[in-house]
Amino acid sequence: MQQDKLVIGGVELDSRLFIGTGKYSDDALIPAVCEASASQVITVAMRRVDRGGTGVMGHIPSSMRLLPNTSGARNAEEAVRLARLARAAGCGDWIKIEVISDTRHLLPDGYETAKATEILAKEGFTVLPYINPDLYVARACVNAGAAAVMPLGAPIGTNRGLRTREMIGILIEEIELPIVVDAGIGRPSQACEAMEMGAAACLVNTGIASSDDPVTMAMAFRRAVEAGRAAYLAGAGAVSHGEAVASSPLTGFLR
């Protein structure tokens, strides 16, 4: 396990749990969540700043790699504009492309996402597009120069888990890039399941931030992701759908 690094855009990561910074009851919890999660990648959003605004950067440990998202973008052009602004902030060139024009279900627009991915990859960004787990959208993002793809498990912020399990399984099978399951993961068991299936990593925001005790939940997600990864590497035993298969010898009984 010591050698089991996740490599995205040439960067080696020890942790396969990415976390977010949204929806905390108090942003002052974020440093402790970072520590408990052992995560190395953290998402942020970019917004207009009001007078006296301080934002979230003061709560993010400097050791974390920033993954700004393009939330608020309704098309590729707006996503590209936000991405360039995010890079101008001087915190690296990783970008999570998020293009959403449906405000009810918050589902990503695959076509616009692939377009933005192509433009930004050419500009040297490390692009992680957030997509529906659709094989053709994922392939379009690969061809556009993505560094990983991030399919959703369930709609954003719903904590409903791996509703798209089979589609994510297809991406894991077919796509060479790391698959980072993003959105909808509400419980550690769901993150663990994604990792057991062979996902490269999970991104969890609401599942941690909306819990009663985000620091403890961050620790639980860390363990779940590690357990799921170890199980994937160990290779699960075959499932028997018929009769039971004894684990103890069927001979030499005391009679």
């Binding site: 977010g20 998402t43 942020v44 917004r47 605004g53 979230v56």
Partner: peptide
Amino acid sequence: ARDNFAAVRLNPGDSLELLHFVGGG
């Protein structure tokens, strides 16, 4: 660019956007 903040003088009619990072997923 941040290094140019001090050098850029504002003119009438300018349209300026000021942004920063906030919590997000």
